[in-house]
Simulated assay, not measured.
Amino acid sequence: MSTYFQQVSQLESELIDDNNLCLPAQLATKALIREICLSPKPGLVDMNNNGSHRDMNFQTFIQSIRAISIWFEKFYQYGKQAAFNDHHAFLKGIRPIGQQCEQAMYVATNQVNTHKGGIFAFGLLLGAIGKLELLALPVNVQAICSEVAVICQGIVNNELKQNNLTNSVGEKLFKQHHLSGARGEAESGYATVRTISLPIFNRMQQDGYNEEISLLQAMLYLLAYNQDTNLVSRGGIDGLNFVQQQAQKLISQNGMIHPNGCQCLYELDKQLINLNLSPGGSADLIAITWFLSQY
């Protein structure tokens, strides 16, 4: 058994078994465990190193997952309670839960942002699943993602296009480069996952590759095609283009199917660390990919 599978198994028993979480909340926790254990992840914190980050490490992420996983149940239960609300009211009502979950993360990590994007995504996904279950509707990838898209209808226009006074990093990147980041992904019903990484992950699994190799291959496709705002924030459009070009080059050589695929990923990791680039948006989508594969 590889280190990945050993670590995943150990963390699942530590972080899930005693919490009595509902199945969707368990799956969200398992998804975050797999994302942090997946290695090597170029520029990102993993089991090998801290990537391009000086304020967080593998253990910071474990502390964060432990703190936020108990909130996943609350997102799911909210989805059931608010199932008959229109999308504006649903989104408004789920935000305070997300903010409380973020606070739990910051307390656990000594004010380090490990999972803000993950909380946003899984809050919406779990809320959508709770709503679908309450309404006795099908719960599959298409239904879940369509429901998230409905809940988030207009979020890019309302929070990024408008001249809001907050002028967050997301707003600046939208104004400068028309990149909509996590909000755009959510409003699209996670189109990048549905059309790029999830089909690759599923195909690799069907072809007999294990979960670790399948996720690494899916990650390569995310690095190649996701418009990752974290990369732009750190390295500008040039930083994003560099990572996409390097990942596309590896894919043209069959990626993780190539005998030297893992070694090439290690080399790309070194390059991104030297350039201080971190594809954090793609990290969230790796977790979402695995999560949706369970449906």
Rank of each mutant, 00 (worst) to 15 (best):
T3Y: 10
Y4S: 05
F5L: 15
Q10A: 13
E12L: 00
L15N: 01
L15I: 09
I16D: 11
D18N: 13
N19G: 00
L21S: 07
P24K: 06
L27P: 01
A28L: 06
A28D: 02
K30H: 04
I33K: 04
I33N: 06
E35D: 06
E35N: 03
C37D: 03
C37G: 03
L38T: 04
K41F: 11
P42Q: 05
V45D: 03
D46Q: 03
N48M: 13
N49V: 11
N50L: 11
S52M: 07
H53L: 05
R54S: 14
D55Q: 11
M56K: 14
F61T: 07
Q63P: 01
S64V: 11
I65T: 02
A67M: 08
S69M: 01
S69C: 12
I70V: 14
I70L: 13
F72L: 08
F75I: 10
Q81D: 13
A82D: 08
A82F: 09
H87S: 15
K92T: 02
I94T: 13
I97T: 11
Q100G: 06
C101G: 03
A104F: 09
Y106L: 15
T109G: 04
N110H: 14
N113L: 02
H115P: 04
K116G: 07
F120I: 05
F122V: 06
L124Q: 09
G127S: 09
A128F: 02
I129H: 08
I129N: 12
I129M: 15
G130F: 00
K131A: 14
L134P: 00
L134T: 10
V139I: 14
N140G: 06
S146D: 15
Q153H: 12
Q153E: 15
G154W: 02
V156A: 02
N158R: 13
L160W: 00
K161Q: 15
Q162N: 07
L165G: 01
L165H: 10
L165N: 11
L165I: 09
T166W: 05
S168A: 02
E171Y: 00
K172V: 04
F174G: 04
H177V: 00
H178N: 10
S180R: 02
A182N: 03
R183N: 04
G184W: 00
A186V: 05
T192V: 06
V193C: 06
T195K: 13
N202R: 12
R203V: 06
R203F: 07
Q206G: 06
D207S: 13
N210S: 08
E211K: 07
E211D: 12
L215H: 05
Q217W: 00
A218G: 10
L222Q: 03
T229W: 07
L231W: 12
S233A: 15
G235W: 15
G236T: 07
G236F: 15
V243Q: 03
A247K: 02
K249W: 09
L250N: 08
I251Q: 01
I251K: 01
Q253N: 11
N254S: 15
H258G: 02
P259D: 10
N260D: 15
N260A: 14
G261S: 09
C262E: 09
L265F: 09
Q271M: 06
I273C: 11
L277M: 10
G280D: 09
G280L: 14
G281S: 12
A283S: 14
F291C: 05
L292E: 04
L292D: 04
S293I: 08
